[in-house]
């Protein structure tokens, strides 16, 4: 059965976000030949719409207008709702991002339907869609079907693989719409993301409460330096962030960032399920912990039982001399 799917896309000056490209690719296979459209809001959206066609969109709705450049969730919900009325998709996909986690539920409730948040897989069959997502702090997964339409889902980065579909053309529909927000943004501070981003780094070194203080992160920084700061980025457990030892923007886990690096090194992190929810997709995990019973060893490929104050300097030396 063919299905029509609408993707709520995100972009910046460099182009469509990677996750949006993934969602479009996923949508084209889920649609079984139905239509895949995208909505892009804000100045520059018409130009960015072009690249959505190569990932499988056939139609792009844009509001190429400065007044939609700032993400205001209630206002964006009005816009996407308007496009829903035009397109009547069976499924609306959003990124599990600052945008999606705020917009997804608003849309679902506006449309008198249901949303599954933070999905890691979406399937489609004759009966409709099935969405699978982690729950219970990452201890379990739940698969849901929808008994209302449209199905809405926010999807975690890297749940689908982005692939160009050998198509370059599609229709761009520019919408004129005015909407107001009841919320005004007084101030927005972006945390400087110069250098390697945590979510892009092939190696993530993560420090936890067992470091005993913020100085522990200096030692981890030294380790990152010898590996190369073009390869290694530093993350932190929630406990370490809550203690003010490292910025929240670097928190890994259920309520922080999800990372899927080639190598994840947990240093004095116990590996609570809510922490592992943010790193269990890593290709390999190393646990460095003085407690041999620490949960992180259960997901690790390699482990060293010991005091990080000895192990990390030894690792720095071993890498230097190798």
């Amino acid at each position: 059965m063919t299905k029509n799917i609408l993707v709520v896309g995100e972009f910046n000056q460099d182009g469509l976000s990677e996750t949006t490209a993934e969602l479009l690719t996923g949508a084209s296979s889920l649609s079984s030949g139905g239509s895949v459209s995208i909505v892009l809001l804000g100045a520059g959206s018409q130009e960015k719409a072009q690249s959505s066609f190569s990932y499988g969109a056939t139609k792009a709705y844009t509001i190429d207008n400065e007044s939609f450049s700032e993400f205001l969730p209630d206002k964006w919900a009005i816009a996407v709702n308007d496009i829903y009325e035009k397109e009547k998709p069976d499924l609306i996909l959003l990124e599990q991002s600052t945008v999606g986690r705020d917009l997804g539920p608003r849309l679902a409730f506006k449309l008198n339907s249901a949303v599954a948040m933070d999905c890691v897989s979406i399937e489609s069959d004759d009966a409709g869609f099935k969405a699978t997502r982690p729950c219970f702090g990452g201890n379990a997964r739940a698969t849901y079907s929808y008994s209302a339409s449209p199905a809405v889902a926010t999807v975690r980065a890297k749940s689908f693989e982005a692939k160009t579909q050998g198509n370059e053309n599609g229709e761009v529909v520019q919408i004129d719409l005015a909407a107001d927000s009841k919320v005004s943004v007084i101030n927005r501070e972006e945390v400087a993301t110069e250098g390697l981003k945590l979510t892009d780094a092939p190696i993530v070194l993560c420090g936890g409460r067992g470091l005993g203080g913020p100085e522990g992160f200096d030692m981890i920084q030294e380790l990152a330096n010898v590996i190369g700061t073009d390869k290694a980025a530093i993350g932190s457990s929630r406990a370490a962030c809550d203690l003010g030892w490292y910025p929240v923007a670097n928190q890994v886990g259920l309520t922080g960032k999800v990372v899927n690096p080639d190598l994840y090194v947990g240093i004095a992190v116990s590996g609570a399920s809510q922490h592992m929810a943010g790193c269990s997709g890593s290709k390999s995990i190393i646990a460095i912990n003085k407690d041999p019973e620490a949960n992180m060893f259960k997901s690790a490929r390699w482990g060293i039982v010991g005091d990080y104050k000895e192990v990390v300097p030894a690792l720095i030396e071993a890498i230097k001399s190798s």
């Binding site: 991002s97 600052t98 919320v183 005004s184 943004v185 007084i186 101030n187 927005r188 501070e189 972006e190 945390v191 993301t193 923007a249 960032k257």
Partner: peptide, 8 residues
């Protein structure tokens, strides 16, 4: 996810 925002 990458910063803070104050809204009213």
């Amino acid at each position: 996810l990458d910063g803070f925002e104050t809204v009213e």
